[in-house]
Computed example of a mutant assay.
Amino acid sequence: MTRPLETGEPVAFRAPRLLDVLIPTRNRPTELATTLSGLAAQRGPAGFGVVVSDQSDDGPAWADPAAATLARVLRHTGHPVLLTRHLPRRGLAEHRAALLDRSSARFVLLLDDDVWLEPGTVERLLTAIRELRCGFVGNAVHGLSYLDDERPDQHGGYEEWAGRPAPEDVRPGTPEWERARIHPAANLLHVTRKLGLAPGEWRAYKVSWIGGCVLFDRAKLVATGGFDFWSRVPANHQGEDTTAQLAVMRRYGGAGIVPSGAYHLETPTTVTDRGIECWQVVLAAEPATEGATP
């Protein structure tokens, strides 16, 4: 019989670290196991931590044998793992806020529970954010079922940063907002292929927001409020990741990174009641930054 899985001690988990990976999950044991398998296969950095926060209807997803095994593999290879339950559900933003509060690391990778990362992805993102010195970098997720569905009309929004990303106040209705068209389906993979990057080479490009895999400088995320706006929005919302990124980008700048090593599992969402966009509520109460991108 499998022995019970140790959940870890929150206080002990707060030891100083370079990086923590923060994963919210609900009703997705198979997907969570796959996501953890991608983390277990990363080559670096050594000793990054992993927090899994569960809001499943029944037992926690991390207690499933496959997910539990990968949690044990991570611990066995030197990665602290904290497994938590966070109930009642108060919306996606509140869940992200609770996860962020669990970490004291210099950098935090916000990773969805339906994303597999190829080896080398985490190390590349860390290299990028250290060199660029911006608020966040991210890997948009590829949907490989769209690999043969090339959409050149959606590739025009790809624009590289020539140097360090500058702060931008990106808002709906602007050309900058349309940059998001590069991320659905396999668009970014098609664009990356055309770049012909050499092994180990990466590029930073301009974004409006990125879903699924975003690495933040934790201090900069906290300085711009993190996900504390959760109390200002109804629980049935989406776009909490967009809202936080817009705030960080406004003060510190942000970038997407190619190549992306993030792959979407393309499973149905477990959050079906999401009628409110967080950024609509938050941006409505915040005037545009003078002198920034209109």
Rank of each mutant, 00 (worst) to 15 (best):
P175E: 14
K220T: 15
L32S: 05
A247S: 07
L111N: 03
T174H: 02
L87R: 15
P199Y: 02
A285W: 04
V21T: 05
I182C: 09
R203M: 13
D101P: 01
G138Q: 01
I257G: 08
I129Y: 12
E176V: 11
V282Y: 09
T127E: 15
P287S: 06
L111Y: 10
L117I: 05
T289S: 07
V122D: 01
L126W: 01
S208L: 06
A71K: 03
V207R: 14
G38P: 10
V50S: 05
G47R: 04
R203P: 07
A15D: 12
E168Y: 05
Q280M: 05
L83H: 00
D58I: 01
L215V: 06
Q154E: 13
F13A: 02
A223P: 13
A15H: 06
Q154R: 15
A93G: 14
H95F: 01
E123I: 00
P16T: 03
L197R: 12
N187S: 12
H264Q: 06
T35D: 00
D113P: 01
A68K: 00
Y205C: 07
R17I: 11
P184V: 03
R133W: 07
I210C: 00
S145P: 03
A262N: 00
L82M: 03
K194G: 07
E94V: 03
R106L: 09
G91E: 12
L109A: 10
G163S: 11
L39D: 08
G138A: 09
R250Q: 11
P16L: 03
P184M: 08
V21K: 00
T121G: 04
R26L: 09
E176C: 08
F48S: 07
G239H: 07
H183Q: 15
H190T: 06
C213D: 00
L283A: 08
E201T: 10
L197H: 08
V248E: 04
T270V: 09
P152E: 02
E201W: 15
A284D: 15
D112R: 09
S103E: 04
V122I: 02
R250C: 06
T77S: 11
T7H: 15
G8Y: 09
S145R: 11
T267Y: 04
A15N: 13
A63Y: 13
G253H: 11
K220W: 11
T269S: 14
P287N: 02
V222T: 14
A63I: 05
R218L: 04
P165T: 04
R89T: 13
D273I: 02
P294N: 03
L32E: 01
V214W: 03
L22F: 01
T77V: 08
L83V: 00
D114C: 13
R171I: 10
G59F: 06
G225S: 03
T127P: 15
G44L: 04
T192Y: 11
A97W: 09
L197A: 06
R171P: 14
M1D: 11
E31A: 09
P16K: 03
L36F: 00
E240F: 07
G156R: 13
L117E: 02
I276S: 08
R124W: 06
P268Y: 01
C278V: 05
A204M: 02
